[in-house]
Design a protein around this nucleic acid. Structure first.
Lengths: 204, 204
DNA sequence: CGGCCAATTGAGAATTGTCAAGATAAGTGG
DNA sequence: CCACTTATCTTGACAATTCTCAATTGGCCG
């Protein structure tokens, strides 16, 4: 069977698609990072997720995108027409099983984020965020106890339900208390990863 | 093929299973309402969802429950062993398709909740909540422009990332501004459903 | 070197939380 | 059926975390 996929590459800051667009595609991130967000009518923004290498995009929904997907870095993706994708699934039940499992993981991640947004303090949110990101990056072959932030403070704020000022202040607090160090190039060293993890889990 | 399902009925306040329990079952709610929640080590609670007639429970996860499921009312469920359920899916690809779609819906709902928790005010959260609940109940055959709340104020607070006092105060505000009326028996009349909907969507 | 965008820091305001007291409703037993 | 008991809900006064507005600093690129 032909793959029927296109390579779609865009620059940092460009959108793959916008909230409300008809979007009959499924994407797979080959290289780079993506942010997903929704806007309220008055401009308030909530980032619902960051995607990295290997992540799928556009599986849910009914042909209309319910969020905007924007590249944080130069981005390479592999795009499938949804129809082809569905046919692929029909032909390969094993793939569909994997997708069901993937959807389950996404749901677990969403629940995690709901707990974070509903019940964690600003400091706990940032700690959770840094730990999760570092785990994801290590899984992709990155260094241990170090995170690279491809997103701005504003993006982090809109992901954690905070303001940019609060994110900045809490970063400083974490630095001052010796849990992290701010490195040049938007990198962060997790000086005390254990404590950071405990903090993020609400183990006061 | 035999159905291999058991009827599991429990009282209000009883748990179907607890966070961390090995949980090799999938449940379908036949009658009643359920709350799902996670606890932080110090007791902070986040309710991640309310389930009603027809909802599935326990699809995600890897055999270990990542939330507690507790009955809000006397509850009737239909329980499947996960293995049997998986076999059922293998035998009926159409069912698996439906489940993938269902998982997509759940993910959309989770995103909606993330936006609510991350960026909406207390008043907007409560408005969203009431509107969503009324839509769900109407879909199950309930009356239009009226909601029954099977959960306590504390449950609502823990679902919306607020405190019980804030929920109570905002209820009063909504009542005072003529958007709702509080009826006996934990019922609420949506006097101005349109305005409530707009408020919930952040259309200030 | 200059300009620009992002990040940090400060001061004060606001929404929401905390603590406490009553009021209402619901459940129980006589 | 009523009185009592208890849990839930409401309301108030005050505190605290986070937000808003503003200015400054820092880093990156032409």
């Amino acid at each position: 069977m032909a793959c029927n996929s296109d390579a779609i590459n865009i620059d940092a800051g460009q959108a793959l698609f916008h909230e409300g667009d008809p979007n009959p595609y499924v994407y797979n991130v080959v290289e780079g990072a993506v942010k997903l967000y929704r806007l309220l009518p008055d401009g308030r923004r909530q980032i619902t997720g960051f995607l990295f290498q290997g992540d799928f995009l556009g599986l849910g929904g009914r042909g209309v995108a319910n969020f905007t997907a924007e590249a944080l870095t130069p981005l390479q993706t592999c795009r499938f027409k949804r129809n082809n994708f569905d046919q692929l699934l029909n032909a390969l039940p094993a793939l569909e099983h994997r997708l069901v499992a993937l959807a389950g993981d996404e749901l677990m991640a969403a629940q995690e984020q709901i707990v974070l947004l509903g019940r964690k303090t600003a400091k706990e949110r940032l700690a959770s965020f840094l730990v999760r990101l570092s785990e994801r990056q290590r899984q992709l072959g990155g260094p241990e106890h170090q995170v690279h932030l491809p997103m701005t403070r504003l993006d982090i704020a809109d992901y954690l339900g905070l303001t940019i000022e609060t994110v900045s202040r809490v970063m400083t607090q974490l630095k001052t208390s010796g849990l992290i160090r701010l490195l040049p190039g938007n990198d962060i060293a997790l000086v005390n990863a254990e404590a950071l993890k405990a903090l993020g889990n609400g183990e006061a």
